[in-house]
Each structure stands twice: as structure tokens, then as C-alpha cells.
């Protein structure tokens, strides 16, 4: 749906790390007991993720959010359809499926020192971060989450209303000359 406008509307900032708004992304909150989560995961494709991890199959990624909650990441336009699939998989059982594609913003950090940008904002451990894990944490004064998508590549998620604050935080942390040189 081309009319959807993410909070930073595709902006890019070139610092010692490139910060970019990834634009609208499909997101679905799934809540349920482990059996229901497993059924929904099966219907959507990826394996059921272990705690603090992410699994993917094709364009669909599942992120572990809490013992009874997963988040689906997918194409923006695909979210309603996938939500329907998930709901169908648990029809009659106790579970919750909600499309939340507009509730959050996702930014990308790109550069060999991408982790250093996060090191300035979160008390979470960055050493040993690897593709396939997700950490929900605090980014300065905001709630957020981050995950690694490749060497020197991170995605950072925050609530939409704090999207501008977190964007400014990331760009400020990536300003040239402030490399941590660890």
C-alpha cells in the first residue's frame, strides 16, 4: 500500500555508520500458549523461534518477544493476509492476532562499526551479537529492540511515536568523529 508513510519517510543519514529508515514494514503480534504459537508459526512458514531469537522463511520472519508472544515481520501489504492465516491456524483456541504494522518504526544501521552506535544507547550486551537473535531493551529513554541481519548490519525497532526521537538518537550516535574505537 503505497500511501503508508513511516515516521521518517525513508530518510538516510551518513555518519560513521549509515542510518536509514526502512519504510513501512508488515508486523503482526501473535499471542498464545506455546502450542498455539507453534501452530501459527507452522502456518506462516518459519520455525518456532527459541527465546531471544528469530527465525525466517522467505519473506516472513518470526521474532520471539516473550514466552507467550511472537512478532511476525513481513512485507507491509502481506500483513493482513498472514494475520488471517495465523488466525485460521488457531481457530477455536485461545490466542490473539493483531496487525501492528503501523505501530513501530524500523531503522537500519549499516557499517563495520554499527554495533558502536547501539553501544551508546543500550545497556544490552553487544559483544557476541549474532544473526538470528533479538534483544528487546532500552534505547536511551525509549523502549526498543535490535537484531543483527549481517556483518555490520543491524535493524533497530521502536514505537512509532518515538520514531523521530530514536532516529535523532541514532544519527547523533553515528556522527563522524565519535567512533568508539574499541
Amino acid at each position: 500500500m503505497s500511501d503508508a508513510v513511516s515516521p521518517m519517510n525513508g530518510a538516510t543519514f551518513e555518519g560513521f555508520v549509515t542510518v536509514s529508515d526502512t519504510g513501512p514494514r508488515g508486523m503482526i503480534t501473535l499471542r498464545g500458549a506455546p502450542e498455539e504459537l507453534a501452530r501459527m508459526a507452522k502456518a506462516l512458514g518459519p520455525d518456532l523461534p527459541e527465546p531471544l531469537s528469530m527465525t525466517a522463511k522467505g519473506p516472513v520472519t518470526l521474532a520471539w518477544m516473550s514466552p507467550d508472544e511472537l512478532m511476525v515481520l513481513c512485507d507491509y501489504d502481506a500483513a493482513p493476509g498472514l494475520a488471517g492465516k495465523a488466525e485460521a491456524a488457531v481457530a477455536g483456541a485461545h490466542a490473539l492476532v493483531a496487525v501492528v504494522s503501523d505501530a513501530r518504526a524500523i531503522y537500519r544501521l549499516d557499517g563495520p562499526d554499527a554495533a558502536d552506535v547501539l553501544r551508546k544507547l543500550t545497556p544490552a550486551r553487544l559483544d557476541g551479537a549474532q544473526v538470528g537473535t533479538i534483544r528487546r531493551t532500552r534505547l536511551a529513554q525509549s523502549a526498543g529492540a535490535f537484531w543483527m541481519t549481517g556483518p555490520g548490519l543491524f535493524e533497530v525497532m521502536c514505537f512509532r511515536s518515538e520514531g523521530q526521537y530514536v532516529w535523532t538518537l541514532l544519527c547523533n550516535a553515528a556522527r563522524p568523529g565519535s567512533e568508539l574505537n574499541l
Binding site: 515516521p7 536511551a140 529513554q141 511515536s161 520514531g163 523521530q164
Partner: peptide, 15 residues
């Protein structure tokens, strides 16, 4: 730290 000016507080904005 960075918490001054624009970044003093996490201001929430509607669309």
C-alpha cells in the same frame, strides 16, 4: 550525555 536540546526527552509525536 546526549540528553540535551532535541534529545533532552523522548518526545512522542502523533502521525
Amino acid at each position: 550525555g546526549e540528553a540535551r536540546g532535541e534529545l533532552f526527552q523522548s518526545i512522542r509525536r502523533t502521525p
